Amino acid sequence: MSAGRDASPAPYRVPGPAPQDRIEWPAAFGTRFAIFVDTEEEFDWSQPLDRARRNTEAMAALPEAHRRFADRGVPITYLVDHPVATDPRSVAVLTGCLEDGRSAIGAQLHPWVNPPHEEIVSGINSFLCNLPVGLQAAKLAALTQEIEHAFGARPRAFRAGRYGIGPQTAAMLADQGYRIDSSMRAGYDYSDEGGPDFSAVPNAAFRLGRIVELPFTTVHRGRLRRGGVALHRGLGRVPHGRGVASRLGLYSRVSLTPEGMPLDEATEAVRVAVGEGLRLLNFAFHSPSLQPGNTPYVRDTADLRAFHRWWDAVLDLLDRLGVRPAGLDELIEATLVGPAGLEPAT
C-alpha cells in the first residue's frame, strides 16, 4: 500500500512454525521466565496517534521499579523506542539500570514517532508491516543507530510496536544484527484493526529465518481451555460471552502482564503454563504504567500499588515453582545450544 493512504491492506496471517523450527531448550536451561518492557513515550491511548507526542516523563519512575526487580535477581530487557533513545535523561536512567549486570537494552519501533516520516499518521500505518518495505527498513535502521549511539552497543532484541511484525521483518532484523524478536502475541488476532493475525502462533519459541521468535505468552485457562483460539473467537460472537465464560470458570484468555490481567487469573495461568511444559514464560508491560495516569491500567496510586502487588505475588509463585529468571544474554546463548546442552542448534 502507499504510505500516504489510509487504506486497509490484506491482514498478515502469520503461519505457525514448522516442527523443525521450534526451539529445543538445553536441559540445563530448565524452565525460565523473561520480562520485556515496552519502554516508550507517554500518549493518550484513547486519542488518535500524534507524531508530536514524545514526552518521556514517566521514565523518572523507572529506577525504583527496576530496583524492585533487581533486588530479587530478576533482569529486564528494555525495548526502547525512538523518543526514549533520543532523550538524554531517559538514556541516563536506563544506563543506571544496566548496572545490575544482567538487564539489557533492545528496540521497539513505533512508526508514527520514528523517522523517516514519510507516511500519514493513522491506525493502519501504526502497524509497521503496513508501510512500504523500504520505509520499514529505513525506520529500523534509524532506530538501531540511535540506540547504538545512546548506549554504545547495537540492540539484539526487537518488538514491533502494536505487534506490527510483517513477512519481511525477520530478514530486516537479521541484517541489522538482531538475534531475538518478541513481536508476536500468541493466539491474538489484530486483523480487525489492520494488524497481523497470530491465531496460529504458539507460546513456544521458534526460529524465524535467521532470528529467534519469543512470542508474548498467552494462556487459556478454565475447564474449557482446550478450546483455545477457536473458543475465544466463538465466545466473541455471543453478547457478553467471554465475560460470562470467565465468571463461570469455563474459559478465559490470559496474557502474562499486570496490565488488565487480574492476579488470580495470572497465577493460575502461570501454573497451567508450567504444568503443560512450557519452558519459557514471556512477560511484558509498558514503561508509562509505572507512573499513574499514563495508561488505562494504572490510573492512580491505588492502581500502581496493585501493579507492584501483582508482580510480588507472581514472582513469589515463580520462585516456588522453580521457574528462574533469564536475561537477554542467557536467552541468546541458550538458543545456540542443542537440547542436550552440547550440540549446536541447526
Rank of each mutant, 00 (worst) to 15 (best):
Gly187Asn: 08
Gly177Ala: 10
Leu173His: 01
Ala138Ile: 11
Gly187Glu: 08
Phe127Asn: 04
Ala153His: 15
Arg156Gln: 13
Met172Gln: 15
Ala174Gln: 12
Ala174Gly: 15
Gly164Phe: 01
Gly152Ala: 11
Leu140Lys: 11
Gln176Met: 09
Ala174Leu: 06
Arg159Trp: 08
Ile180Trp: 07
Gln145Asn: 14
Lys139Met: 08
Ala186Val: 12
Pro155Gly: 06
Lys139Gly: 03
Ile180Phe: 10
Phe127Lys: 10
Gly187Asp: 04
Ala138Asp: 15
Leu135Pro: 06
Arg162Cys: 10
Gly177Leu: 04
Ala160Pro: 05
Leu173Asp: 02
Asp175Glu: 14
Val133Arg: 08
Leu135Val: 06
Arg162Gln: 13
Gln145Pro: 02
Thr144Cys: 11
Ile165Trp: 00
Ala174Ile: 09
Arg179Ala: 14
Glu146Gln: 15
Ala141Glu: 14
Ala142Asp: 12
Cys129Gln: 13
Ala170Tyr: 01
Gly161His: 03
Arg185Asn: 11
Gln176Trp: 01
Pro132Trp: 05
Leu173Ala: 04
Ile180Asp: 00
His149Gly: 14
Ser126Leu: 03
Ala150Ile: 04
Gly166Phe: 03
Gly134Asn: 13
Tyr178Val: 10
Gly187Phe: 05
Asp181Arg: 03
Glu148Arg: 08
Pro155His: 09
Ala171Arg: 15
Ala186Arg: 05
Leu128Arg: 03
Arg156Trp: 03
Ala150Trp: 04
Ala137Tyr: 00
Ala137Glu: 12
Cys129Asp: 10
